[in-house]
Amino acid sequence: MRPLLAAATLLMLVGIAWALLAAPTEVFQGLPQRIMYLHVPAVVTAYVALLVVFVGSVLFLWTRQARWDRLAHSAAELAVLFITATLVSGAIWGRPVWGTWWSWDARLTTTLVLWFIYIGYLIVRAWAPGSRGARAAAVIGIVGVLDIPLIHWSAIVLRTLHPQPTVFRPEGPALPASMLPPLGVNLAAFLTLFVALLLLRVRQERMLARLVEQLEAA
């Protein structure tokens, strides 16, 4: 676990330095465009995390093995973390470049709603007693991911009927090749960080579960 965390930290440092210092400056947006090197990896990692929550939840309900619940729960925490990072970095990027902190574009709406759904996951896990909490959370974990295409679709319906004044596209026009390497490094950094933190958290939960067993047996 430790070497993975060290690798993640190193990648992050390299990635951030590259993004801030060496990456090419975009013609139209200027400096704020560098936020992309955070925002895009954050959203990709968030969706990877959600996928892990989904798989963990399904496997937990299917096999009833606690380790799947631990995986899903840890991934949900990280999903909320990376969704928060996505929303905040996106808003900060949007303000100077598109003149607005927010818009009801399909992607933003979906990401915001997912934040609430997975906060709900964490709350239910905490507030419903014992194994009911784990099972309830697993149901939410599954339902939330199933909802993603529908949320996205509905936001598109909303937009085509009530057109937005500004077109919000966090990626801007197609990316020039020179931006791909720093983006790649940051993406790798975020994903490695996700895996490192996930493994650490899962292990922590496992230790806790064993301890509780021990204490109850005594």
């Binding site: 709603v113 709900g120 239910v124 939410i140 909303l158």
Partner: peptide, 15 residues
């Protein structure tokens, strides 16, 4: 808890 869970998931319906 119910509104907290219901409203986000049901947002497509409401929209």
């Amino acid at each position: 808890l119910l509104p907290l869970l219901l409203l986000p998931v049901a947002l497509p319906v409401l929209i």
